[in-house]
Computed example of a mutant assay.
Amino acid sequence: MGENEDINLTDEPETPEEAAVEARGFSLGKLIEWILSNMITVVVAVVLSVVVSFFIMNSIISKKSEDVYKTVKITPKPAPLAIFMLDDFRINTADIDEPRFVRVKINLAYNQGNKQIQNELVERKVQIRDVVLRILNRKEKRDIDTVEGKERLKEEIKKEINNILINGEIEDVYFDEFVIS
């Protein structure tokens, strides 16, 4: 049996080193096991990082939003303007081909805290009406028939009236009625 001792008929390794080499060899099961064990920790780490990053960014964004809301101050609305009503205006337009008739009710708005302008408007009512009549008499239908034309007319009336006032200015001109026929 001396010669047969050298031959190993079984699959078992003879030495522990040979067993370690054989264990280190390629095995699909061991590779899958290694990937799963290491990938699970990597996936868990990535998911945790994303969740933590989301909450941190969300809190930063909400703090910035709060800062914006805290710094914005609401300005108080101005007090309503006082109204000075002029009588109706009934005039013919400057149209040559076909004269048109205009009926307008105009109100002048001014700062209600300025009592001097209120008195001046009352005292100069006839002069103010004359200014408005001269302006309206120069206009043709096409000049005042559009929204833009009416806005330009308001600005012109406001400018001309403010040129004659001494104790303040009117803030706006309102048309209560505006009919062109």
Rank of each mutant, 00 (worst) to 15 (best):
M1C: 01
D6W: 04
I7M: 05
N8R: 10
N8C: 04
T10V: 00
E12T: 04
E12D: 07
P13A: 05
E17D: 03
E18V: 03
E18G: 09
A20R: 14
V21H: 01
V21M: 08
V21E: 06
F26K: 04
S27V: 02
L28A: 06
G29V: 02
K30R: 05
E33T: 02
E33C: 05
W34Q: 08
W34C: 13
I35L: 09
L36G: 11
L36W: 05
I40S: 13
T41N: 10
T41K: 11
V42R: 14
V42D: 10
V47P: 05
S49N: 07
V50S: 13
V51G: 12
F54A: 15
F55V: 12
N58H: 11
N58S: 14
I60R: 14
I61R: 15
I61S: 14
S62Y: 11
S62I: 07
K64D: 10
S65G: 08
E66D: 13
D67I: 10
V68R: 10
T71Q: 11
V72I: 13
K73C: 04
K73E: 14
I74T: 12
I74G: 09
T75A: 12
P76W: 00
K77N: 08
P80I: 11
L81E: 13
I83Y: 09
I83M: 12
I83N: 07
F84W: 09
F84V: 12
F84I: 00
M85F: 07
D87P: 12
D88G: 02
D88A: 15
I91F: 03
N92G: 07
T93N: 00
T93G: 07
A94R: 01
D95L: 02
D95Y: 00
D97I: 07
V102R: 03
R103M: 14
L108R: 02
Q112P: 04
G113D: 14
N114C: 09
Q116Y: 04
Q116L: 15
I117R: 00
Q118W: 06
E120Y: 06
E120Q: 07
V122F: 12
E123S: 14
R124A: 12
R124T: 12
R129P: 01
D130I: 01
V131G: 08
V131Y: 05
R134A: 10
N137E: 06
K141S: 15
D143F: 04
D143N: 12
D143T: 08
I144L: 05
T146Q: 10
K150C: 01
E156M: 13
E156H: 09
K158A: 07
K159E: 04
N162H: 00
N163Q: 13
L165T: 11
L165P: 00
N167D: 15
G168Q: 10
I170F: 02
D172W: 02
Y174G: 00
F175M: 06
F175A: 06
V179F: 10
I180F: 07
